[in-house]
């Protein structure tokens, strides 16, 4: 080490439970991108889930227990980054609200929240990344997942980076800001309504003629991919980080064919 070495912030990667369990590729793509952005990545093993299933079911006690675990596991890092607008939104916006008025935890949750970022907005807004060294041949379309869009203002950032991917052409999705119908437990509690919503989404996706659908949240992606597959669609589905990291050799979400 010499003094010329630029400061490399330590980033704690909040993998998110869905990425951990269903699609590790997104996690590795996130690691690669964060490292390319000049950071060191660590993955604390004391993480599980951000707590949204409990929080959105009205179970505050369990949510708080999970939130405390997460804060403890991550608060030592310079940044906490998650490849999901929904989970990052939970950590950033809802943890402080959860501990409001709690003398011991409110300040801690607020400090923690100040360091939390959704992956792509972290790359662009915090680390100033302007381009990626990736290639992806073909037309893609992009769905703006709700929490990332409305809680964290993630809209321009993924488009900016995608425009630097060699060979990639973005076809904008009509009503890209409309929910895909996933909604966490909503999609299994109200499956018929959820289905109606995702049917309209896949119709819009097909309209674009794009061969690949991208988004920044695995929950939404699994929902849309699952519906596209059930409908026999040829559209393939990937997390935007996979494309930005050039990690698209493996099968898309929900498999090939």
């Amino acid at each position: 080490m010499n003094d010329q070495t630029p400061f490399r912030p330590r980033v704690g990667l909040f993998v998110t439970c869905l990425v951990d369990l269903f699609r590790p590729t997104i996690g590795f793509a996130a690691v690669k991108l964060i490292e390319e952005a000049g950071c060191t990545v660590e993955v604390p093993s004391a993480q599980t889930c951000c707590g949204q299933p409990a929080y959105n079911s009205g179970d505050r006690a369990d949510t708080k227990a999970i939130a405390k675990n997460t804060i403890q596991a991550f608060e030592e890092y310079d940044y906490i980054v998650a490849p999901s607008g929904s989970c990052a939104g939970m950590l950033k916006k809802h943890y402080p609200a959860l501990f409001k008025g709690d003398a011991k935890w409110e300040a801690r949750a607020t400090d923690f929240a100040g360091k939390v970022h959704e992956l792509v907005s972290f790359l662009v807004d915090v680390r100033g990344m302007q381009s990626v060294a990736a290639r992806f041949d073909g037309q893609v379309t992009y769905h703006d997942s709700c929490s990332g869009l409305r809680e964290l203002g993630v809209r321009a950032q993924p488009r900016a980076l995608l425009s630097t991917v060699e060979g990639l052409k973005l076809k904008e999705l009509k009503e890209a800001d409309v929910c895909c119908g996933f909604g966490g437990t909503f999609c299994v509690k109200y499956p018929d309504i959820s289905n109606g919503i995702v049917e309209k989404k896949t119709e819009r996706i097909e309209e674009t003629g794009a061969a690949t659908l991208l988004a920044g949240d695995l929950g939404c992606l699994m929902n849309m991919a699952g519906k596209l597959k059930r409908e026999g669609s040829a559209v393939e589905t990937r997390h935007v980080a996979e494309v930005l990291a050039g990690m698209t050799d493996g099968p898309p979400i929900g498999g090939r064919g």
């Binding site: 269903f22 289905n195 699994m222 099968p251 929900g254 498999g255």
Partner: peptide, 30 residues
């Protein structure tokens, strides 16, 4: 790489396929 039906996941698979996990968990691989 997906399920058309999965016990206990009927709410999901009634209307859509469930993408299967890629392989081992991210944490295992990491």
């Amino acid at each position: 790489g997906r399920f058309r039906f999965l016990p206990l996941a009927g709410g999901w698979t009634r209307h859509r396929d469930l993408p299967a996990p890629e392989s081992r968990t991210f944490m295992q691989q990491w």
